[in-house]
Design a protein around this nucleic acid. Structure first.
Length: 488
RNA sequence: GCCCGGGUAGACGAACUAGGUAAAGUCGCCAGACUUUCAAUCUGGUAUAUGCGGGUUCGAUUCCCGUCCCGGGUACCA
């Protein structure tokens, strides 16, 4: 089995493309086949520099790299369509010779005029067939004269085209609704329709999983393949992604705004936002794939369970809450060592100097609190700081004033100073005794201490944290807090 | 306008493509347990709905007709 992902380098690699790639990858692995990356760069106007690099990088980041592609070896190259121009011209020639295509000299101006008139008459705009039956002599002559021309597919005028989509079944379209689509543009470049069908055949693609936006020209592609007399691949048109509400597609503006909430539909942003490849993969896998149970899956598990019969044709709303869920779940599935190597760069980038033993020590304290990897800053940044800067007001316990809180802090200090070592085991008992003695809520006493030690109201468990921070710094931070409370 | 898809709780999706009890499971949300904050974990709850209206049928998410909504196409873009 051979499958392919054929993006055009015209913009950022997004969720939809990623899922198409994933399904292709899963199918290839499942069947022991090959996953091919082909760059469809025939549209020079929309070409974006660096987009191909981003596609490859995104695939690598996700861990679903292709087996063949422009950056890899392979027996079916070249894998970039602009490097295959000769092939397309030859194949256009074949269709011309078999009368499945014709040369068309109509100017864009004439075509838009025709369209206008058709629309005025409430007809469907389509090519009016002026050049459909030009004699070969005339064609040769006009070409000789240097007239600009394209090659169009000669769509049968009668009958209908039946195409089989694996997810939807038979899709029947009457040929009179189909157009004489352009195959070769006047600049010599092929259109998608020619290039993709030719390449899929030459690259021996057996299954085409592509976006549902191709459904409209699906009959055309089937027609082209039949005109060549080739075997068809199995087709599956994957549903589109909708905005979170499930109503309508996400606009460019909405996509840009998602970033402000820490979300993105672009794979290149995922790492920076603290998402893991495992989480993202699991998330997109389940948009359009009905998995009955145990839906937390590793890539290997997905390969094992993937089945194109379980794919759904209906559109799926993008649900970022679910991404958070899968991300957190996969973070907790990581080994402590693996998690450490992933968050270490985040601390370093934030300017902390990180020693590995402290890092390993805090992993058990923060791992189940992380939704995204960069949450490690919020939950564990204070471990690596020389000193913390509590917000004065936050040091004041509930239902108490600054003086009262300072008083408690002093009592805490006294207790901690008597301890030769501050550990979970040694500190908990005396501090709880203090809570009893003052008849306060644990929350009040520990709250003061928490803010003093960590500089924040929400943190990993207190006693374990103090143990890691060490006696010296703990005492210093408590004294500092007492000072702050005294100045309020 | 026309053509082609899609429409099951707030979201994803089950109910195997011969019409036979519709909503399993996941996320979210709410509550409880645990508790030192936040989580994690466990338990319970939440949502009466097959877009809508007809028809065929003993019986319709499934078949037929009409209609609405969403998406794609209607390009020398992919």
């Amino acid at each position: 089995m051979r499958v392919r992902m054929a993006p055009s380098p015209t913009g950022s690699f997004h969720l939809g493309s990623a899922r198409t790639a994933l399904y292709n990858y899963l199918f290839a692995r499942k069947t022991g086949g090959k996953f091919v990356l082909r760059i469809e760069d025939t549209d020079q106007k929309r070409f974006v520099e660096g987009a191909e690099r981003e596609i490859i990088d995104s695939l690598d980041w996700l861990g679903i790299s292709p087996d063949e592609g422009p950056h890899l070896k392979g027996d079916f190259g070249p894998y970039r369509q602009t490097d295959r121009m000769k092939i397309y011209r030859e194949h256009a020639e074949i269709l011309l010779n078999s009368a499945h295509a014709f040369v068309c000299f109509c100017s864009p101006e004439r075509l838009s005029q025709v369209r206008e008139q058709q629309q005025k008459r409430k007809e469907k705009p389509r090519y009016d067939g002026l050049c459909r039956d030009l004699g070969s002599d005339e064609v040769a002559q006009r070409k000789e004269n240097g007239e600009r021309h394209v090659v169009r597919f000669k769509m049968p005028e009668d009958g209908s085209t039946s195409a089989l989509d694996h997810l939807r079944g038979e899709i029947v379209t009457e040929n009179r609704y189909l157009d004489d689509y352009v195959l070769l543009k006047s600049d010599g470049m092929p259109t998608y329709h020619l290039a993709a069908t030719v390449d899929d055949h030459l690259m021996k693609i057996t299954h085409v999983f592509r976006g549902a936006e191709w459904l409209a020209t699906f009959p055309l592609h089937v027609q082209i393949i039949r005109a060549f007399g080739w075997d068809e691949p199995i087709w599956a048109h994957l549903s589109v992604f909708l905005k979170p509400s499930g109503k309508g597609k996400m606009s460019k503006r909405e996509a840009a705004e998602a970033i402000k909430d820490g979300h993105s539909i672009f794979i290149k942003d995922m790492g920076d936002l603290g998402y893991t490849p495992e989480g993202v993969l699991n998330w997109i896998a389940l948009m359009g794939w009905g998995v009955a149970e145990d839906d937390v899956m590793s890539l290997d598990q997905m390969v094992e369970r993937f089945d194109i019969d379980n794919l759904t044709p209906s559109p799926a709303g993008i649900n970022f809450a679910k991404l958070d869920h899968f991300n957190g779940t996969h973070i907790r599935l990581l080994s402590p060592e693996e998690l450490a190597t992933r968050i270490k760069p985040i601390y370093i980038q934030a300017g902390y100097s990180v020693d590995d033993s402290t890092l390993m020590a805090i992993i058990p304290l923060i791992r189940e609190r992380l939704v995204t990897l960069d949450d490690c800053l919020a939950f564990g940044g204070f471990f690596f700081k020389e000193k913390v800067d509590p917000v004065p007001e936050e040091l004041i316990a509930k239902k108490m004033d600054a003086a009262g809180s300072a008083e408690i802090a002093r009592k805490i200090l006294t207790i901690l100073e008597t301890l030769p070592e501050i550990t979970h085991a040694s500190a908990e008992e005396p501090l709880r005794a203090l809570v009893e003695e003052l008849s306060l809520k644990p929350n009040q006493v520990f709250g003061i201490l928490r803010v003093a030690i960590t500089g924040q109201k929400v943190s990993p468990p207190l006693f374990e944290s103090m143990e890691i921070i060490g006696r010296e710094k703990v005492l210093e931070r408590v004294r500092n807090a007492i000072g702050i409370l005294g100045n309020i």
